[in-house]
Design a binder for these strands. Structure first.
Lengths: 153, 153
DNA sequence: TATTGTTATACTCTATAACTATA
DNA sequence: TATAGTTATAGAGTATAACAATA
């Protein structure tokens, strides 16, 4: 990658502007495909799966925390959580520390659903990756943590 | 990248399964950030912007072509196009070849909106890219077309 | 009095079904 | 008769406003 070091500052900037465009389009398009490859045996909506995913990662969260995490208003989260409770994917209980708060916890069924859904998406993506060259896969292996770094900063 | 060639088939598969997971999470998260960085002076919905983007790229399309492109039913596209017409972003006219078809064409205002919206997203992304090392940017420059290839296959 | 969450209600987006115009 | 698009109507998801319980 030594050629990058030979560029002037102006050239690097211009190239990066193009990179931003290209990367945005690539990411948007790939995400669309990944969403389309959702588990058909899974009747939960995108929003419900997002909440379940957050709970799978963080264990337990209050309704307010979930609303903030998903950037949604509290009443919307109340509704979403209600659907998940009805389906047996999560359980709801009042907090001991502050009895106004409601703690939402994922159930075993919920964990299973998250894992199955992810496996389904990964299966499609892994097939696509298998169609690449080893060098291309190596590039993506390097790129993934960089994309992650960009998102969380 | 010669190490990949030394791996057994099983090892490669196992590694790629992990890569699929990692890549999926990275792409999903980055897309969420990019969507959040939409132009606040732009009151068009995500779906409307997607249609405008398609027209910006392809010039003119019929309602049916737009519906197929956005994977939406024709009545939904009729409605979306109607909103865009009301806002002056696109124009609608019957096809000369087949008078049942309705051709939708983007206006100058529509083109301006697409460019402003993309500039806004690219601005945020370019800032993030500027915080990377030259080597990391080089990796992303290689990765973008590979992500594109995966999506369209 | 302020905060957490819920209920009531309305709006947006998309879908299916029925219809009109053209091929 | 088949196709392109529209209109009518319904369902899912989310928002704001008003309210109940707790701090």
């Amino acid at each position: 990658m030594s050629y990058a070091n030979d560029m002037t500052m102006t050239t690097v900037s211009r190239t990066d502007a193009g990179l931003a465009s290209q990367l945005r389009v690539s990411v948007m398009r790939l995400r669309r495909r990944l969403v389309a490859e959702r588990d058909p045996g899974n009747d939960l909506s995108i929003g419900q799966m997002a909440v379940l995913g957050a709970l799978h990662a963080k264990g337990e969260l209050t309704v307010g925390e979930l609303a903030a995490h998903e950037r949604v208003q509290p009443p919307s989260m109340t509704r979403t959580v209600g659907c998940l409770v009805d389906g047996g994917y999560v359980e709801r209980r009042p907090s001991d520390a502050d009895r106004r708060q409601v703690i939402v916890a994922i159930t075993d069924k919920g964990r299973g659903t998250v894992k199955a859904d992810r496996a389904r998406r990964d299966e499609w993506l892994a097939q696509q990756l298998a169609g690449l060259t080893a060098a291309e896969r190596a590039v993506l292996r390097e790129a993934a943590p960089i994309l992650e770094k960009i998102s969380s900063s």
